[in-house]
Simulated scan of single mutants.
Amino acid sequence: MPNETVTLSILKANGPLLENMEDAVVREVPLTIHYNREEIATLLCSPSQTEELTLGFLLNEGFIRVPEDVYELRHDPLDHLVWVEGKPCLLQKELMSKRFVSACCGKSRASFCFANDVLMVKPLTSNLRIPLQVAYDYAKFLQSYLPLFQETGGIHSGGVGSQGNVLLTSYDIGRHNVFDKLSGKAFQSNLNLENHVIFFSGRVSSEILLKVAKMKVPILIARGAPTDMALSQATALNITVVGFAREQRLNIYTCPERILR
């Protein structure tokens, strides 16, 4: 396991008192991903679950679709480099960062996304329903999960659940990296996420909502707040967004029929 924290000397204030002490700080590293000998992206991330992050990123950006698309993956943990050999991809890399503003997925509300997203994201069809108490239970899990957060307070966490059970977990300094790692773990396990729930420690931006849509997950439960653009996209894509999920409290913003009272 990589060393995920560093210990630094700090000056801590408590009221009028100042005290010299040591504190654990979460590490951040640049991970550069190459696909078929071409540099694709550099992600700022936690130095763990690197293979899952790489596969999830490539999957969510459209470079790979099924495990058979990946021929080889090599990782240099010292220089934070990953090389993936896989099926030739017709998707143009420049589309990853090309802005595209249009009606979201053919709906009437204007939305911002990238050109690759337009090609990959479609409205979901799912009959999944979960009891309200199960939603509370997933939120509660986020509070108790992950000693590294308790130690540093510097990371986001998330998980995938089904029928009240937690199947996958991930964590990272980057919100979007959490979702790529979950996606990569599901990819490795050949797990179809279409009737699962994702729960997440942070806020829900449009970027996060599109990650969920690419994973084809119909319910997102977050401890943080959503943005208006994320909710506009969620409505168009038929995704249930739950925010401010803490203890026995939560807000259901879109597609509320999936949460049974």
Score class of each variant (00 low, 15 high):
Pro2Gln: 12
Phe199Ser: 03
Thr152Cys: 03
Ser189Lys: 15
Asp79Gln: 13
Ile155Val: 13
Leu146Thr: 02
Tyr35Trp: 04
Gln143Met: 03
Ile64Glu: 10
Val121Asp: 01
Asn190Trp: 05
Ala103Trp: 03
Arg74Ile: 05
Pro88Lys: 15
Leu90Asn: 12
Cys45Asp: 13
Asn116Ser: 12
Val118Lys: 11
Arg246Cys: 10
Arg129Met: 02
Asp180Val: 09
Val101Ala: 14
Gly224Ala: 11
Leu193His: 04
Val160Cys: 09
Ile10Gly: 02
Pro77Trp: 13
Gly56Ile: 08
Lys98Tyr: 08
Leu167Pro: 00
Pro123His: 03
Ala103Glu: 10
Thr240Gly: 04
Asp172Arg: 05
Ala13Gln: 15
Glu39Thr: 07
Gln92Asn: 15
Gln133Ala: 05
Ala186Asp: 04
Ile239Asn: 01
Met215Glu: 01
Pro2His: 13
Asn195Glu: 09
Leu209Asn: 01
Ile208Asp: 06
Arg109Ser: 10
Phe200Asn: 01
Asp23His: 15
Phe63Gln: 04
Leu124Asn: 00
Val26Thr: 11
Phe63Cys: 13
Gln188Arg: 11
Ser97Lys: 12
Glu194Tyr: 05
Thr7Leu: 12
Phe187Lys: 08
Glu72Asp: 11
Glu94Pro: 00
Asn3Pro: 00
Leu168Cys: 07
Gly174Lys: 06
Leu31Ser: 03
Lys12Thr: 06
Lys214Ser: 11
Gly154Ser: 02
Leu95Thr: 13
Val101Cys: 14
Thr42Arg: 08
Leu91Ser: 12
Pro16Lys: 09
Val160Met: 12
Glu94Trp: 06
Leu237Phe: 07
Asn14Ser: 15
Thr42Leu: 09
Gln143Leu: 10
Lys211Ile: 04
Pro88Asn: 14
Ala24Arg: 14
Asn116Met: 10
Met229Gly: 06
Asp172Cys: 08
Thr227Tyr: 06
Leu237Ile: 07
Thr42Asn: 12
Thr32Pro: 02
Cys255Ala: 09
Leu43Met: 08
Ser102Asn: 07
Val241Tyr: 05
Asn36Lys: 10
Val242Pro: 00
Thr227Gln: 09
Ala103Met: 07
Asp79Ala: 15
Leu209Met: 15
